[in-house]
Structure formats: structure tokens, C-alpha cells
Nucleic acid binder design. Structure first.
Lengths: 294, 294
DNA sequence: GGCGATCCATGAGCGCGGCTCATGTGCCGG
DNA sequence: CCGGCACATGAGCCGCGCTCATGGATCGCC
């Protein structure tokens, strides 16, 4: 075998197949033939000496080794991609390039715009791409770990999901949770709790344990915006983070839970290797300078 | 232009040319023709839109942009290189691969052996390569920043050399400086100070400022081992870190400088992207478990 | 159980890109 | 002014990655 390391086109094939969950579909999105993809995957597997995908009737799914390979492939391809912009900045040129940001909804809506505005003013050559990701499971941090984003705005509470080794992170600010209930129901007790799939449960569960009352029932919603709509409609009360309340509908009463109320840490997570990029560095600087924004 | 990103063979050429300081020499070490290298560099420059090397009578030197490109190239090539080992480990196989370690002399001699022994016992497939680097200028950290090492054992005192953004680091232990003088001269005062080029000066300068006496003269040596030999020979006294004293020649008296004596922080610095590698992670674990070793 | 559908695998052949060989160009020292 | 040194350039060969065409496996369906 001439070389034992994967060629970029093979890396691209791996990523594409993993995302398209099939050889044929992966080929299509690369503008290639299914045959080419099949050859490429096979070659890659021979080079690495590991089976990367389980082939089946319903397409191809990465093995554990394959998932690793795909994440690393995305990472390498991104490094190759941004090399141009990076080198230009070093040569005394303007800071350029794209930055892929993963953020949970409320941060994307209420924090990022200001930061990105100021970034655009300072560095017109930088074009950020924001991807809104639910903070469940791997969440926004997972996007960075898998090489799908360069920077994540994430919740950093260690009890939820540990930050994978090898990723840089930093704290931005602490966010309180507030209790909200319909203006029509002055006493939240007796109302069902409207919880949401995101991180509310794990961050607030401890707090609930210390309370002398528990909600009568729990309804789960997908989105914090939906939660607020339901509360506004009188369907229950909820405990939501501050940021989610910006731009909340009317008819809602918020109540501070005091110094011992639940909180969550909001921070950023950077892809290794990307933190050296000038554009990413500038963005982090902007995030750090951000007012708590509440 | 078909693709705007550099191909691996071009990355290799860039690195080789930078290290060999010339197109011809760079070609030779790759087993290529000078012509091939010339073509490759030109293609890379066209792709990036930047001049990467200044060509001259005495070979080629990287421009500022070129230096960046070379560092990134080394990084990408390393990621490609280690992909195989990485993926194997993920597939449930044994932890394998090479780890390139940059360390200053005393750490390499007195700390690493034990750590590497235990690493070898736990993971026979891992083969570490230790590179001893003077802790001057960029030092061991610079090796990591430039992609020549995966992990550095470095002094972390921020006043000496800041850790470049985008590198992960952690503290391992604190090391005291001790005063050493010849057994033949009970009072060090009056003896010339034998300093060494490494980090002694910056770490101990502040301490000297607070003393009520100063050495009559200063001699500078290249190596901490040489410093000790000179002290043993009665040529002066010195202030050296604890680790350097292990295995010191006879005829030397060490004196503790007390709780306010100079100290330095010893830690590790990891190349971004490498910290995800199983081998590197294991090595860091070993370093962390290391007894202070003095 | 045969049949079609829908995946992936495999083999043959073509074309592009990267290599070498041969030669050209600029620069400096003597 | 010339020779040597180091990079530049052009022509041509060759391997590799692509496509096209086809084969093989597995599932759902009646």
C-alpha cells in the first residue's frame, strides 16, 4: 500500500456517508457515483484496518470506530478549509473566514445578535453561521466535538454533560432560573408544571427536592418558547432561565426564586485547532465582552 | 482552480521545505525532485493566494504567512497520521500510536522515565518519543504550538512566555529553587553566580531583588548540568530548581530558600486535537498521578 | 417462494494531476 | 565576466480516482 493515511477526498466521503446514512445518498450529495463512494470507503477501511460502516438494507451506519473517524475527518477538513483565511490573517491581511456557531435557542436569539453585530463592525470579512441546537444529550458541545461547529454557546453545568476531553471552554455568565405563572392564577401551587426537554429538568430537579411542595402534574414541551406560550395560556407554571423570558408573551408573571434558586452556567466551547483561528478568537473576545444581557 | 485547499502532499512539501530551508534540500528529504517541490510550492501559493517562502540565493525561508501555514500543515499531517491508531482504540482495540513529547532536560531525566514506564506497562502499544528542548524562548510549549510535539512538559509561569491561545494546558506541580554552593565554600556570599540560559533568570530575578546581597559576578552556562558541575568545581554558587539537583555531583551543599524562595510551576501543554487521542490522554493521566518526584 | 426494489460490491477503462527529466533564469562571488 | 548555486518552467509519462456497467445480498410483498 502506497500511503496508509486517508486522502481528503476519502475524508469527505466518510463524512458525507455518515450524514446521508448511506453510500448512494452520500455519493449524491458529493456529486459522485455510488460506485466511487463504495470504492473510497473500502479503500479507507483497508488503510485504517477497521470496518467503518455497517452496511445493511437501510443504508450504512458508522461503527464506533467509524464515528470517531468521521469526527476526526470533519475536523481535518475544517482545518484544511480555514487554512486560507488563517494564513491571510497571518500575512497582515484582514481577518476573514467563516465561523460555525452552535447555540441553544435563547442564546442565539438574545445574546448572539449583539455580539455578531460588533464582530461584523470590527471584522467585515468574517461571516458567522449560527446553528440552533437543542441543549439535550451532547447538545451544542456535541456539535463541536463532532466537528460540526467551531464554537458552541453551551451550558456548562458539569452534572448535565461533561465537556469531552480535548475541547477548550470558558465561562461567560451565570443565568438564574425564574418561576413563571399565568397572571390569571396568582398562586402557582396547584398548577401543573410545564417542563421542557432541554436542560431545565436536570438543573432544577435539585431545587425542587428542597421545596415543600411539588407540582400536581408535569407536562413536557419541546421548546422554551412553547413553554412560555402554554404558561401564558394558563395551562401551567414553569421554571425557565432568564434569557428565555426576553420577548415572552404577555399575561405572564415572573417570580424570582431568591439567591438559592436554581442557576446554570453559560459558557463557550471551542473546537481544538479552531481556537487558533483569528476569527474564532475575535468572536470569543466579543462574547466575553458581552453584558450579561438581561 | 479545481480545489482551493491544499493536498496532503503539498502540506508535506511545505513542512519539508521549511525544515530543510530550501527547495532542493526539502525535495531530497522527501525523495522527490527539486522540480516537484517547486511545482508543489507554487501550486500551494496559488491556492492560498499568498507567498509562503522568500526564495533567495541561500535557499528558502518561510514568510510570516508561510510559517503559519507550516505549523498548521504539521498539525493536519499529524492528525492524518494518528487517525489510524485513534480509530483502532475507538473500535475497542488496544491503545496504540506514537506520542511526541517535548520536555526540558530535568523533567525528561527525572520525571518522564517513571511515567513512561507505567504507561508502557498499561499500554504496550504506545511508543513515546521524547525530545529534550531548552526552555528558552518558545521553549517546549513552542514545540507543541508549531506542531513538532503532541505534548510538552513545560514551565507555566506566565511571566516567562504566555501559552499561545488554543493550546490546552494543566498544572502538574510546583518546584522550588534551591541555592547550591560548593562544600568547600561555606558562605555563598562573595562567590560568583552561575546562571543558566534556561528559565532561571526570569524566575529568580524577582527573588534576588528582595535579597540584601547580590552576587559579585554572573557567569552564564548553557545547561543546568553544567551549572552543577561548575558549582561542584568551586567556581561559584547557583540557584537551581529541585529537579536539576537529582543526580547532582558530590561536593555540593544545597540550602533551602524558605517559603518565600523562588518557585516555578511545572505543567503540561497539549496540542489541540491531540488531546482527544487516547495515547495522549493516558500519558497526561500518568503525569498527573506522578509523585512530586523529589 | 418468486419477484422487484433497494441497497452495496466489483471490474474495466478513461482522463487528470503530479511526477521526472531536461533545460532556463536570476543572483552572487571571485 | 564567468561559474556555480538555487529556483522556475515545459513536455511527457504514469498511476489513481472516477464513471459505466453489471453482479450480489437482503428485505417486503402477495
Amino acid at each position: 500500500m502506497t500511503t496508509s493515511e486517508l486522502a481528503p477526498h476519502e475524508l469527505r466521503v466518510l463524512v458525507s456517508v455518515a450524514e446521508a446514512r448511506g453510500f448512494g445518498a452520500g455519493a449524491a450529495r458529493l456529486g459522485l457515483t455510488q460506485s466511487a463512494v463504495s470504492h473510497a470507503v473500502r479503500t479507507a477501511e483497508r488503510k485504517l484496518g477497521v470496518v467503518l460502516f455497517t452496511r445493511g438494507r437501510q443504508g450504512a451506519a458508522p461503527t464506533e470506530a467509524g464515528a470517531r473517524a468521521v469526527a476526526r475527518a470533519r475536523h481535518i477538513l475544517r482545518l484544511l478549509d480555514t487554512m486560507g483565511a488563517e494564513v491571510h490573517a497571518a500575512g497582515g491581511g484582514e481577518v476573514t473566514g467563516t465561523v460555525r456557531i452552535a447555540a441553544f435557542r435563547s442564546a442565539a436569539v438574545h445574546v448572539l445578535p449583539g455580539v455578531l453585530d460588533r464582530l461584523a463592525a470590527r471584522h467585515p470579512g468574517v461571516s458567522p453561521q449560527v446553528n440552533i441546537v437543542r441543549e439535550v444529550g451532547p447538545g451544542t458541545t456535541g456539535e463541536v466535538a463532532d466537528g460540526r461547529a467551531d464554537l458552541a454557546v453551551a451550558t456548562l453545568n458539569p452534572d448535565t454533560y461533561p465537556i469531552p476531553k480535548g475541547l477548550l471552554s470558558g465561562k461567560l455568565f451565570e443565568e438564574r432560573y425564574l418561576l413563571v405563572h399565568p397572571a390569571s392564577a396568582p398562586d402557582p401551587r396547584g398548577l401543573p408544571l410545564v417542563d421542557w426537554a432541554e436542560n431545565c429538568s436536570s438543573h432544577t430537579r435539585g431545587w425542587w427536592r428542597d421545596q415543600d411542595w411539588m407540582p400536581t402534574a408535569t407536562v413536557t414541551a419541546e421548546d422554551d418558547g412553547v413553554v412560555l406560550s402554554m404558561v401564558a395560556a394558563g395551562m401551567g407554571m414553569a421554571v425557565v432561565p432568564e434569557l428565555s423570558l426576553l420577548g415572552a408573551p404577555g399575561g405572564i408573571v415572573t417570580r424570582d426564586l431568591g439567591p438559592d434558586g436554581p442557576k446554570r452556567q453559560v459558557g463557550y466551547v471551542v473546537a481544538p485547532g479552531m481556537a487558533q483561528g483569528a476569527a474564532v478568537r475575535e468572536l470569543i473576545r466579543g462574547l466575553r465582552e458581552t453584558p450579561v444581557g438581561v
